[in-house]
Amino acid sequence: MINREMVWMILAAMVVTWVPRILPFVLTKGKSLPPLTLHFLRFLPLSIIFALTLSSVVDERVGHFPRFLPIETIALLPTFFVVLKTKNILLAVIVGVVVTASLRFLSGI
Rank of each mutant, 00 (worst) to 15 (best):
A51M: 13
R104A: 13
T17K: 03
A51L: 15
L52Q: 09
F25P: 00
E60C: 05
L54D: 07
L11N: 08
P70G: 07
V83F: 07
V98D: 01
L90M: 07
S32V: 05
W8S: 15
K29S: 13
V99E: 01
F80K: 01
V62A: 14
R104Q: 12
L23E: 00
F40A: 12
L103K: 04
L54F: 15
F105V: 11
P35S: 12
P20D: 01
V99L: 04
S102G: 12
V97Q: 00
L91H: 06
N88V: 01
A101L: 11
T37P: 01
V99K: 03
A12T: 15
S102R: 00
P35F: 07
I89Q: 05
F50E: 05
K29N: 08
L23K: 00
R42H: 08
R42T: 10
V97M: 13
R104P: 00
T53K: 00
I71K: 03
A51D: 09
S47K: 00
T53G: 14
R67F: 02
W8K: 15
I74S: 05
I94C: 11
M6H: 11
A75L: 09
L11M: 14
V7D: 08
K29G: 03
S56N: 08
L52C: 14
I94G: 13
S32A: 11
F50V: 11
I2N: 08
T73R: 06
P45F: 03
M9L: 12
D59A: 05
L11G: 09
I2E: 11
L103I: 06
T86C: 02
R61M: 04
L91V: 09
R4G: 03
T100G: 00
M9I: 05
